[in-house]
Design a protein around this nucleic acid. Structure first.
Lengths: 334, 334
DNA sequence: GATTCTCTTGTAAGCGCTTACATCCCTCAA
DNA sequence: TTGAGGGATGTAAGCGCTTACAAGAGAATC
C-alpha cells in the first residue's frame, strides 16, 4: 500500500518548496503561472489531497459546523436540516451530522466528538440536557444554537417555535368542536422539551375547559409504535373521541391502526398530528396537524450561527406555527 | 474569549507532563491512581477535550468512516444507513454522512472532503461516477465499498441487490396479470445506475412479452414530483392500466394523484413501487413493491468495510430481493 | 551494599500543514 | 552603474498530540 502523498511529495516532484505548493493551493494568485502549472501537475499525478487534520491544527478553524439531531430515521428533521445545510454551504461551511437516537448519553458523546473534531459551531435540538454540557461548550468557546425550541432566556440562543402554544391552540379548536374525551400519544417526554410542551398544551386547554387531563400514552418514535399506542389508548378508554398525537409519524401509525380497529376517521374517532410532514397529506384521511416552518427555521438557525461565528451576538427567534385543518379532525360521534 | 484548553494546560494544572496526561486519557492503567485522579480533576475543571486533528495527525487513523448518500430528504437510505452505523459504532468507528443531492459534482466534492478529513473508509451508493474518482481513491489507499448496487466486476467491492432482475420479475408478474399498456415513472437515470437498471428490467420484460417499451416519465425524487409525473403519463397515454414506479416515494405521489384524477387503484389503474419503505404500507391502497433488505445490506456493507480495514480482501455480496404483493396491483380494467 | 528489575513519569521528536520572515533576483530610476 | 523596490520562492517555527526512549525511584535478589 502506497503511503498517501503529502505536501512534501508534491513539492519534491514539482521541484519547489512545500510553502510554494501550499500557496498554489490556497492563494494561487501569489505564485507565478509556470510554477503553478508544474505544481498542479504533480498534485494531479500523485492524487494528492491535503490532510485536513494538519490544516485544521494550524488554521484553528475547520469551516465545519456540527449538528446533533435525535434521529434520521424519519423525516421530522430532514427538511429543516437540509435548509440549514444549504445556507451553510453557500457560506463555505461543511455540515457534519450525528444522531443521538433520543439518548442523552449518546448526545453528549456526539457533542464532544464534534467539538473534538474541531466544529466551529454547533446546532442542537431543544434545551433539555445536562447543564454540564452548556458549561463545556462555554469553556470551549464554541458558538452553539438550539433549534426546534424557543426560549429567549435559555442557556443558548434559540430559533424555534412554541410547541405548547400551538398544541394548546389546536386542542382548544377541537374542544370547540365538542370533544370531551381526549387521548394523547406523546413521544417520550424525558429529555425532550418539545414533547413535554405539547402534552402541556393539551392538558392546559382541557383544564381551561373544565376537563380532566388527557388519557396519555408515551412511546418511542415510529409508525408501528404509534399504532400500538393507539390500541392501548382505546383499551384504556373506549369513550375517546379524539386522539392528539405529538407528531405526524405517530399520528400516521394511529391512523392505520384505527382502520384495523374498524374505526372510520373522523366519523368514529378524530386524530391530529404535529409537524405537517409530507406524510400528513399522504395518509387517508389527510391529517389535521400543526404546520411548523421547517425550512425557515433551518435557514434562520444557519444565519444565527453564521452571525455568532462573525462575532455578533444574535438574539433568539420565535417563528410562527399554524394549524392545518384537514380531514382527520371532525366533530365527535353522537 | 478563553483559548480552548490544551493537553499542556491540563498538564501544568495537574503538575505533570503532557505525556502523563495523554496516558491518563488513552491508557489509564499505565498511570498510578493518585496521579490519574489529579489529572482527571484538571481535565474536568478546564473542560478539556482532546484536539481530534492533532490526534489524527499523529495516529494516522481517525476511526471514522464516511458515507456519501444521494439524499437524506426521504427515507430511501435511512434504514440501511442506520444499520451501517450500528455495526460501525459497535466496532468503535464514527460515521460521517454527506449528501450529494444526486449531483455528481457535489458527490465528488463530498468524497474529497471526507478523504481529506481522514476518513479511514468510505461508503458510496451505486457505481456511476467519474472514473477519476476511483483512481483517486486507489492512490489514497482508502478502502471504499459500494452499496445499493451489485457488480462483482466493478471497480469497488459492492454489497447490493439486482435492481434489473427484481423489476423484471415484478413486470413479468404484472404482464401475467394481463397488463399491456404499461407506464413507468423513473428517477433521473443519468448518474444513477439503480434507476437505469429498473427501467431496463421493465423494458426487457415487455420486450420478452412482445410489447413495446414502457411510456416513460423521468423526474426528481419526491412525492409531489411523482404526482406530477403520473399526470403527465396519463396525458400522454390514457390507455395505461399500470404505472410502475422506480421507488416507493414516487409511487406514493402517483397514488395520491390517481385519487385526484378520480381513478380507483387498482380497479382503474394499477401502481407499483420499489424499496418497501414504511410508506408503502401507509398509503391507501397499500403498495405492491419490491422488498429490499435494507438492514441486511447496511450491516453487510459495514462488515465488508471493516474487513477491508483489517487488511482482508472482501468479495462482493448479492442480496436477494422479493416481491411484496399488496393492494395497488390488480388485473387491468376490462 | 551492590546489582538488577520493575514501575512510573518525563523528555523530545515528529505527524503534515500554514505562514512570518528571510532571501534572491529582476526591474527601474537616478 | 548603482541602489532601491518589489515580486517569487525558500526556510523554519510551531499548531496539539502520541510515543519511543531515557531517567529515576523503590523493591527484590544475592
Amino acid at each position: 500500500m502506497p503511503r498517501t502523498p503529502t505536501l512534501e511529495d508534491v513539492a519534491t516532484r514539482a521541484g519547489v518548496s512545500t510553502a510554494t505548493v501550499s500557496r498554489c493551493l490556497n492563494m494561487p494568485e501569489k505564485v507565478v503561472e509556470a510554477t503553478r502549472q508544474r505544481v498542479m501537475e504533480a498534485v494531479e499525478a500523485l492524487g494528492y489531497a491535503p490532510n485536513f487534520s494538519a490544516r485544521a491544527l494550524v488554521a484553528k478553524r475547520t469551516l465545519t459546523i456540527g449538528a446533533v439531531i435525535p434521529t434520521m430515521e424519519n423525516a421530522i428533521f430532514a427538511e429543516g436540516i437540509q435548509a440549514f445545510q444549504d445556507i451553510l454551504q453557500a457560506a463555505g461551511y461543511t455540515l457534519l451530522i450525528a444522531s443521538s437516537g433520543y439518548d442523552p448519553a449518546t448526545e453528549a458523546e456526539a457533542i464532544r466528538t464534534l467539538v473534538a473534531r474541531g466544529a466551529d459551531g454547533l446546532l442542537l435540538i431543544g434545551f433539555d440536557r445536562d447543564p454540564a454540557l452548556y458549561s463545556f461548550l462555554d469553556k470551549q468557546g464554541i458558538p452553539a444554537v438550539v433549534a426546534w425550541a424557543y426560549d429567549a432566556a435559555g442557556p443558548l440562543v434559540s430559533v424555534g417555535f412554541d410547541s405548547r402554544a400551538a398544541m394548546h391552540h389546536l386542542a382548544c379548536h377541537a374542544i370547540g368542536l365538542g370533544h370531551r374525551h381526549i387521548g394523547m400519544i406523546s413521544a417520550r417526554q424525558s429529555g425532550n422539551d418539545r414533547a413535554r410542551a405539547r402534552v402541556e398544551g393539551v392538558t392546559e386547554a382541557m383544564r381551561d375547559a373544565g376537563l380532566g387531563a388527557p388519557v396519555l400514552e408515551e412511546t418511542d418514535y415510529g409508525i408501528e409504535e404509534g399504532a400500538a399506542a393507539f390500541s392501548r389508548l382505546l383499551d384504556r378508554d373506549p369513550a375517546l373521541t379524539l386522539v392528539m398525537c405529538g407528531n405526524d409519524v405517530l399520528a400516521a401509525g394511529a391512523t392505520r391502526q384505527a382502520e384495523q380497529h374498524g374505526l372510520s376517521v373522523p366519523r368514529d374517532i378524530s386524530l391530529t398530528g404535529f409537524d405537517d410532514l409530507e406524510l400528513a397529506r399522504l395518509v387517508t384521511p389527510a391529517l389535521t396537524t400543526v404546520r411548523v416552518p421547517h425550512r425557515a427555521m433551518g435557514e434562520a438557525a444557519a444565519r444565527t450561527i453564521l452571525a455568532a461565528l462573525a462575532g455578533e451576538t444574535p438574539s433568539a427567534r420565535l417563528l410562527p406555527t399554524d394549524i392545518k385543518l384537514r380531514e382527520s379532525l371532525g366533530p365527535p360521534r353522537a
